[in-house]
Design a protein around this nucleic acid. Structure first.
Lengths: 150, 150
DNA sequence: CAATTTAGTCACTTATTTTGACCGTCACTA
DNA sequence: TAGTGACGGTCAAAATAAGTGACTAAATTG
């Protein structure tokens, strides 16, 4: 069997993760664009995916998303321009600024969470609820190991 | 519970995939760089990951990796310059060129496959062989569904 | 053999990522 | 309470990457 065939039939963890990530992202943002959020691109996910309703610090967003601080800065600039978030001084630390979602931002966050839940529910129906739950459990362990061990 | 906490404790499929992919990629290429392949970057994976020992067409590599043909062209240029692959006319189709790995390229492919197998084996030991096998099985189904449906 | 596709490259334009320096706080400690 | 090092965020610039449209040559279709 040729290597490319083998990779297709028994893809490694990286290939599976990559395929899933990009395809999921594409579907999510396509769906969101039909729900009134056409301007937001997958890139902005680094901010919106981790944003708290009460607001989050740019550094926390950087740490959680694994992006550089500059990238977060740029994304926040764009999201401010689009009306999804605003920057407010952090009362607890005068160095920091809180990135706080606006009404529009909150709507995006809710819809995005809902679509993801729905997409996962479809997978669960297809492969079996129990099998899917177990899959998620192990995936989380693997992801933690992979991330932590470095 | 705040949203960011929830995302940390019960990450969605996208977050898990993303974390796993990027961390895996980073570790893989870090390890490979200590094995005599310091010049190759994750980007080149689009070519090297799917390359056949007998050579592959640029179009096939583009299709399998999901990259544009131009991207593949550029990557092949770089890999040629680094001595990992060479371009040879495809005897079966005079329009096409085969991208064929050199000795160095073959070494990279073997080592990269071996490191991935090893990394996965470590995960399997940690979460249990059986659980890991089942995880891979379901992951493959989910990835196919996610990719195919759209 | 004309019309259509397909493989690949060229030349450009536009995004995205990465780096390094820098300023104003903060936290700790002597 | 002054000194020191670390942290939060931004600027500017350099380096990489991605996306487009047009174009040549060869295969396929009919």
């Amino acid at each position: 069997m040729r290597r490319s065939e083998r990779k297709r039939e028994r893809p490694d963890l990286g290939i599976l993760s990559g395929r899933t990530l990009f395809s999921l992202q594409k579907e999510l943002f396509t769906r969101l664009s039909t729900m009134g959020h056409a301007q937001v691109r997958p890139r902005h996910g680094a901010v919106l995916a981790y944003l708290d309703v009460e607001g989050s610090r740019a550094s926390d967003l950087a740490a959680q998303s694994g992006q550089h601080k500059q990238v977060i800065g740029t994304l926040v600039d764009e999201l401010v321009a689009l009306g999804y978030v605003e920057r407010r001084p952090d009362p607890a630390d005068r160095r920091a600024k809180l990135v706080v979602p606006t009404e529009l931002g909150l709507d995006h966050m809710e819809k995005s969470d809902a679509v993801l839940v729905e997409m996962e529910a479809e997978h669960a129906r297809a492969v079996g609820e129990e099998a899917y739950a177990e899959f998620k459990r192990v995936f989380q362990l693997v992801a933690e190991r992979q991330t932590g061990v470095r």
